[in-house]
Amino acid sequence: MIIQTSTTMVHVVLLFCICLCKLAGVFAGLDAVESVSVTEGDSVTLDSGLNDIMDEDLILWRFGYNKTLIAEISALEDSTAVFDDVLDERFRDRLKLDLQTGSLIITNITEEHAGLYTLQSNTVRKNFTLTVYAFSAHLPVPVISSNTSQCSSSSSSSSQQNCSLVCSVVNVGHVTLSWYKGNSLLSSISVSDLSISLSLPLEVEYQEKNSYSCVINNPIKNQTTHLDISKLCHTCSVSKLVPISAAAAGSLLILTAILIFCICRKCRKTDQEAEINEDEVTYIEPTFYKRQARTPVVKEDDHVEYAPINKSR
């Protein structure tokens, strides 16, 4: 008697545990929501999770939080129906049913088909959130720029310097912007709003050899820009020295040009003066004449008187 009672209690406990597990699975199914993304104009299949429809299955597909019935399969009555005239006929000629699995197929999707879809059957209940991305809304290419005003050394006592970068995109929505080092994610930022601008900073060593890339993506596609450190990153000392060197080189060129101009002008002036002097001077061949010796002529007077000469002692 005691053995039979113990066996019965064990069976009751096992049955209770099985029921709890079943209920937990049902409620978990009610709360779980599967996200599905698609581009406008494409088709999507909402999978029922069934391999085959059973003889007594009743499958109902509903749309929106108001649970509007849009499709139905009744295996017991061997009937199928799509209600594409509801909700202002937004599903007109766009709904199909897989008669083997009960999955719902939506074709030529537009943005008005985005929302909550609910599957309910005898054995399964599933929720889907459908996101539709506009075909014309392309993802922009991320732009990487350097923030030169943030050029700073990694520490006050270290000569190693860092380069501050910013990756940015404009007019985006429902995207994630990320920095990658090789294949490793460094940082990311996500946004669910429409037409917003995003920017994500990054600081690297200017001599670093690792590969970095900035990626923007949504569930449909992505765009990537790779970082070229040699073009965007320079040391602070180099960035300050370049303008000074350029100014010095420019001044030297100006002084050299002025000096050459003065020398050329002086040489030209000297040549002009020499030409003027040559024009004013006339050279004549000298002529030499032989001079004849002149003999003095003494005239004798007709009457000469001689006077005595007295000598004194």
Rank of each mutant, 00 (worst) to 15 (best):
T8E: 14
T8I: 12
V10Q: 12
H11M: 11
V12C: 07
V13A: 11
L15F: 14
C17K: 08
C19T: 13
C21H: 07
L23E: 14
G25Y: 10
V26P: 02
F27N: 07
D31V: 11
D31A: 13
S35C: 02
V36E: 01
T39V: 15
L46S: 00
S48N: 06
S48R: 02
L50F: 04
L50G: 02
N51W: 03
M54I: 05
I70N: 00
A71G: 02
A75K: 07
A75T: 03
L76C: 05
S79N: 08
T80A: 06
V82G: 00
E89S: 15
F91R: 03
R94C: 03
L95Q: 05
L95E: 05
L97P: 02
T101Q: 06
T101H: 05
S103H: 06
I106D: 03
T110G: 13
L116D: 00
Y117N: 00
T118C: 03
S121A: 09
N122S: 15
N122G: 07
V124A: 05
T129Y: 10
T129V: 08
T129D: 12
A134R: 12
S136E: 13
S136D: 13
P140R: 06
I144A: 02
S145P: 00
N147E: 12
C151A: 14
S155Y: 07
S157F: 12
S158L: 14
L165M: 02
L165W: 04
V166G: 03
C167E: 04
C167V: 06
S168D: 01
V175M: 02
T176P: 05
T176R: 12
W179C: 04
K181S: 13
S184P: 02
L185N: 06
L186G: 01
S187I: 03
S188K: 15
S192N: 11
S195Y: 15
S199T: 04
S199G: 04
L200M: 07
L200Q: 06
L202N: 05
E203N: 13
V204I: 13
Y206W: 14
S211D: 12
S211L: 09
S213Q: 12
S213G: 00
V215Y: 01
N218L: 00
I220Y: 01
I220D: 04
N222L: 07
T224W: 03
H226M: 06
L227E: 04
V238M: 07
S239W: 06
V242A: 12
V242G: 00
I244S: 01
A247M: 10
A249T: 14
L253Q: 08
L255Q: 08
A257T: 11
C262H: 10
I263W: 11
I263E: 06
C264K: 14
C264D: 07
R265S: 13
C267G: 08
R268V: 04
E273N: 08
I276M: 14
N277Q: 15
T282R: 13
Y283D: 09
Y289P: 01
Q292V: 08
K299A: 09
E300H: 09
D301N: 13
H303Y: 14
H303V: 15
H303R: 11
E305D: 14
E305Q: 13
E305F: 14
I309Y: 07
N310E: 13
R313P: 03
